[in-house]
Design a protein around this nucleic acid. Structure first.
Lengths: 197, 197
DNA sequence: GCAGTCGGCTAACATCGTTAGCCAGGGTGG
DNA sequence: CCACCCTGGCTAACGATGTTAGCCGACTGC
């Protein structure tokens, strides 16, 4: 959790996104309004537009922050599970079947720790032009490598993890359901599948 | 696609939810406002509150409609794939590995055909008290039976399908990505998995 | 015939994102 | 040293949102 934020250079801008994040994580998405953000740092709403063109720009900064944190979390798991770091880029060796499960666990843990941020990150079309270059690929990297570079498999696992997380966050599973069982089932299914295809 | 709507009896109420649906599917979620709904049927917004307590009640009617349609679509697939209808309830025989893939395909097709309705149905906590009794179970039934009654497996497959659909609808996969490959991979993985556990 | 409910209406409130336009302060060029 | 202009505040306002209060006409049941 080091710096994590490139485009907003000014101190004020950083103050704004951190106020927005506190509101989001503290009071939910409907609390993050331009007036509330401004109030929290002691200015008035229209002044925010001197630092960001509109609200979605603030949200994009939040999204970039979340993606960077998620990428860090997944990279940490990757380093622990398959300590073959420092290879040539693109090296797809020794997936290790536990790697997928470990990454899925970290993914779920991040989403549950930051539910509203996760929903903000994943619930809408990503404005890729507003993201730091390479961020999206960096976040996807650990999983892609864990499945041996198979893009279809990576997308399927991502879909599974995202779907499970988002259904859990929305309270869609029956109350008290044993979700870890379903996660295990899913990770097991993907681990058992051969890379052919 | 027969009747599909129990609580709103009055003709006006039905008119309201159908106007809401037309707005949702025709112009997207931000178009479905109380004023626009009212305008479409020739009355003023406050009059809507003589028929529904608030906007979320209208949305719940839409959600119930969508869930019923989705349930019908899945039941149709089930009848085609495993024509052993009329068994004792709870009978879990002969899953048929293609059944999961067929159901997943129908699920995806419904979501892509009604993207905004699907997002409305699945993107928020479900107000179960506002749903017709048994609807949720009915929608879940075909998949649960297809995986032989294994709740963990059913949840995992649901998570996979929902995640894939929602990522696709949000345009999160790279443009031009071959999603059918990922779907096949996922369905294959779940089909290969034994029911032990 | 009268009462009451049903279903419209207008006016209004608070909140939202956003814009226009004004102005104080500070740094810089002449 | 003074004029300028840019930065970053501000107030006032617009149009839109969901929702409430209160009014009133018509139709229905007794």
């Amino acid at each position: 959790m080091s710096d994590v934020s490139s485009p907003p250079i000014s101190a004020r801008a950083r103050e704004i996104v951190s106020a927005a994040r506190e509101l989001l994580e503290g009071e939910g998405p409907e609390a993050v309004s331009m007036r509330r953000i401004a109030e929290r740092i002691g200015i008035k709403a229209p002044s925010l537009y001197k630092h960001f063109p509109d609200k979605s720009a603030v949200e994009n900064a939040l999204i970039a922050q979340g993606m960077a944190e998620l990428a860090e979390a997944l990279e940490a798991v990757e380093a622990k599970v398959a300590p073959s770091a420092g290879l040539a880029p693109g090296a797809s060796v020794a997936p290790g079947e536990g790697a997928v499960a470990a990454l899925a666990g970290a993914y779920r843990a991040y989403a549950l720790a930051h539910p509203d941020l996760y929903r903000l990150m994943s619930g809408q079309p990503l404005d890729r032009a507003a993201m730091p270059a390479g961020l999206e690929d960096r976040a996807a990297g650990p999983l892609v490598r864990a499945v041996g570079g198979d893009a279809d498999a990576a997308r399927a696992v991502w879909g599974f993890a995202h779907g499970m997380v988002v259904l859990e966050l929305a309270g869609r599973f029956p109350p008290g359901a044993d979700l870890s069982g379903a996660w295990a089932k899913g990770c097991g299914a993907f681990a058992a599948e051969p890379s052919s295809g």
